[in-house]
Amino acid sequence: MRTVSAAETAPTTHPWTVHAEGLRVRAGRHLAVDGLDLALGTGVHGLLGPNGAGKTTLMRALATVLEPAGGKLTLLGESVDGRADLRRVRRGLGYLPQQFGFYPRFTVREFVEYMAWLKEMPKSLVPGAVQRAIERVGLADRAGSRMKTLSGGMLRRAGIAQAIVNDPAILLLDEPTVGLDPEQRLDFRELLRDLGTDCCVLVSTHLVEDVVAACSDVVMMHEGRILYQGTPDDLIAQGSAGDAGDSPAERGYSALLRRHRAEAGR
């Protein structure tokens, strides 16, 4: 339970939480995202695609780490390219990078508290929000442990806790399920569905099963562009018995990729 401010209940004036038009982003010299159009609203969106499709670069551009090299990018109704003031947008952001660094001497609680402070949360709300975030990821019994003593899956969950501590309007999770055991993955799907009710969640993953189970929307990327956007059921409908894969969703995924490559090769 928390106090809801007037700014939170005010009607939004932007049609999409995340809106990209012809977005181009460089990763080093390489143009990893090239002319991407994307519109995302509230809900859980699964970002799929082969390695090197530009998923992580897109995530970093949406997280305002990378500056777009071209095109338009609007987050929460505010443009974030060029010399825009990013502070307001960043207050509504939660981000878990693919490889996330941390200060090994911090305890989990200190780490999440430090991130909450960096996210400019009101001082009085921080302790409660930190405890809630740690409980939501199931780390309450290790809240006092130092980060360096945690296992890979626990670190991942600590990373998710810092991402959700400020109740973000846009939550970007890059490979959040790496290192989680099967039971934790089920809990994580539950958490995703819960978060997706009032927040725009974008989850990048290689696990098609996670997307089908927890996402309301599937976005597939290939070579820096959006290849497909639809519901998980649509994705399943794309595949037929002859396609590679062990589940209907995997068959849909490989069918889409194969069809795209065949068109590109022609």
Partner: peptide, 18 residues
């Protein structure tokens, strides 16, 4: 040299004040 730079770079406090 800052292990958490990518996390910090996305927060509103990042920038000149920090």
């Amino acid at each position: 040299s800052d292990p958490a730079w990518e996390l910090i770079a996305t927060t509103p406090s990042a920038g000149l004040p920090l």
